[in-house]
């Protein structure tokens, strides 16, 4: 049986460098998956393929809710269903926090101004930055900006949320506030695929942890298994390096 997000034989090269060497992966509806691994292992490339920010070859296939992720109409459908949070936030600097959250529902879904406004208030309250709604992103801390970015993605009411190292660009004292928002989100039934270096978060929140190295999935399983009894030598070495430093 294939998953809500199903990935078959995903290959991706940058020039002669093979970033992904044939990934097969099924992710169930509502599942929270954390992808871990050394830098350059292909984990960011993997999730950037799911909404086709990275184009991939025709021999590979990705489906989200059975819609193929191929250019054209079906890609527009997929992108409306798949939210993404970036390492560098990528908020729109010329728009206020509220306008950042309202833009996509207004333009893509055709939501009325009043409804988009109400929804933005609700989402900004949910991520704890309602008071900052009229500020511009540059007036916010990194942690606040990332929470706005989460609210902006949630405004499209996505079925799947992709997180590409959401806390890697943050000062250490701001990591917690973003992880807390993500933890709350994990409890709401939205499917989450999180590329992260936060092993504590992965251990606590993930339903499944996937370890990648050199463009391949080396090992996958429940967090307890992966962290307590990794089977593969590469997983063991990676965890040893990141957990005991």
């Amino acid at each position: 049986m294939s998953g809500y997000v199903s990935i078959r034989n995903l290959r991706k090269s940058f020039g002669t460098f093979e970033a992904l060497r044939g990934i097969d992966l099924d992710i169930g509806r509502g599942e929270v998956v954390c992808v871990i691994g050394p830098s350059g292992s292909g984990k960011s490339t993997l999730i950037r393929c799911i909404n086709r920010l990275e184009p991939f070859s025709d021999e590979s296939e990705i489906r989200v809710d059975d819609i193929p992720v191929i250019p054209g109409r079906s890609l527009a459908k997929v992108r409306a269903e798949v939210g993404m949070v970036f390492q560098a936030f990528n908020l729109f600097p010329h728009l206020t926090v509220r306008e950042n959250v309202m833009l996509a529902p207004r333009r893509v879904r055709g939501t009325s101004r009043a409804d988009a406004y109400r929804q933005a208030e609700m989402l900004l309250a949910r991520v704890g930055i309602r008071e900052q709604a009229d500020k511009y992103p540059s007036g916010l801390s990194g942690g606040q900006q990332q929470r706005v970015a989460i609210a902006r993605a949630l405004a499209m009411e996505p079925q799947v949320m992709l997180f590409d190292e959401p806390t890697s660009a943050l000062d250490p004292e701001m990591v917690g506030e973003v992880l807390d928002v993500m933890k709350d989100l994990a409890g709401t039934g939205v499917t989450m695929i999180v590329v992260t270096h936060e092993m504590g978060f992965a251990r606590q929140v993930a339903d499944r942890v996937i370890f990648m190295d050199s463009g391949e999935v080396i090992e996958a399983g429940p967090p307890d298994e992966i962290f307590a009894n990794p089977k593969e030598a590469r997983t063991q070495n990676f965890l040893k390096a990141v957990l005991h430093h």
């Binding site: 527009a76 970036f86 990528n90 893509v108 993605a153």
Partner: peptide
């Protein structure tokens, strides 16, 4: 920055919408 295009694409904005709502307003300045 490329991230502005990517964030727009990830939100489902069309190329036209991306230009009109995100990129050109920033370029104008």
């Amino acid at each position: 920055p490329k991230g502005q295009f990517e964030a727009s694409a990830a939100l489902g904005l069309s190329h036209r919408q991306t230009m009109l709502d995100v990129i050109l307003p920033q370029s104008i300045r």
